[in-house]
Computed example of a mutant assay.
Amino acid sequence: MGRPSSIDRLPPEIRELINRLRDKGHTIDEIMRKLGELEVVQISRSSVGRYVKARAKIGERLQRTRVISEALIRERGNEPPSRTARLNIELLQTAIFDIFGLLDEGSDEAVADQLKNNPKAIHDIAKAMDHLTRSSRNDLDYERELEASIRAKLATEARSGFEQEAKRQGLSADTVSALMAGAFGVKKDE
């Protein structure tokens, strides 16, 4: 990676000003005029252009991810929370891998420079990866607990139904226990 761009070396307030102006629809020439009024002369028009272009690419990727995420969640709206959580985990993993893919490709030096010069962004990515790991683990634990709960409920219902039918048929308690253990793997003390 190269050295920080002239935009990255500017004070944060100036970068924020550039971002705000661009967000309001100002052209690169209008941004350059405003920077000239503030006597920020150490940057070129092409630097501002590259910065605006890189920022637009990032915004485009975020928007595309947001649209995909919303569509998938709408599509899966009736699914259990564990599947929605899994979808969110996968989307965040994809976003993180996309960021690292950009760094590996070296095609977007502005993104790489921004990450290189922004330890907080790297920290936030590491934190997001840690949260992903925890979320995956919590999701798996939730599924296991849910499965155990369902099995226990089914076993109780099976035993109860079986016992009621056995009484109706006149079968002994030992016969019912043997049938439960053989047919459902349910023992009397469960």
Rank of each mutant, 00 (worst) to 15 (best):
R168S: 03
D139N: 10
R144A: 09
R151S: 03
K34W: 06
F184L: 11
E147V: 09
N78D: 13
S6W: 03
P81R: 06
P12E: 11
E163P: 04
A54L: 13
Q93P: 01
Q114L: 07
A173M: 07
A183M: 07
Q114V: 12
T27G: 03
A85G: 15
T156K: 13
S5E: 03
A158T: 07
S47Y: 02
A181H: 12
K34E: 12
E70P: 04
H26M: 14
I28Q: 01
L35F: 03
E157M: 15
I73W: 10
P4F: 00
E163D: 11
R134A: 09
I125S: 03
R64M: 08
L146P: 13
D29Q: 08
L10M: 05
E16N: 14
E60S: 12
L87N: 00
K187T: 13
D130C: 05
R151E: 01
T27A: 01
I122F: 08
D141A: 06
R159G: 01
K127G: 12
L38P: 00
K57D: 07
L102W: 13
E70H: 07
R83K: 11
S160R: 13
Q164G: 14
R9K: 11
S149G: 14
S6F: 14
G101D: 07
R74G: 10
I99Q: 10
T156M: 07
R159F: 04
L179Y: 06
E75T: 14
L17K: 01
D124R: 10
R61Y: 12
R151N: 06
S5Y: 03
K188C: 08
D174A: 06
I14S: 00
A56I: 07
P80K: 06
S160V: 15
E145R: 10
R3T: 12
V186L: 14
A183Q: 06
L62W: 12
A121P: 00
V186C: 05
D141Y: 09
S44C: 04
L132A: 08
E143Q: 15
A148E: 11
H123F: 09
D104L: 11
S46F: 04
N117R: 07
S6D: 08
D139K: 07
R76N: 10
G2M: 04
I58F: 12
Q42N: 14
D98I: 08
E70R: 12
V40T: 01
K188H: 05
L103F: 04
M1H: 09
R33L: 09
K127F: 11
E147A: 15
L154I: 06
A173I: 10
E75M: 08
E39S: 06
R9E: 06
R33P: 01
A166M: 01
L140P: 04
N117S: 07
E165K: 11
I68N: 05
F184P: 02
G25R: 05
L72T: 04
G185I: 02
M180G: 03
Q93N: 12
K153A: 14
E147K: 10
L146C: 14
M1F: 13
I31V: 10
A112I: 02
P119L: 11
R151P: 00
S107W: 10
E16P: 02
E60G: 07
L146A: 13
L21I: 09
R15I: 07
K116M: 14
G59M: 02
V67D: 02
V52G: 00
Q42M: 14
D124C: 08
T175G: 01
P12V: 06
S172M: 02
L10H: 00
A173H: 15
G101F: 14
E39C: 08
E109K: 05
A173Q: 04
R45C: 07
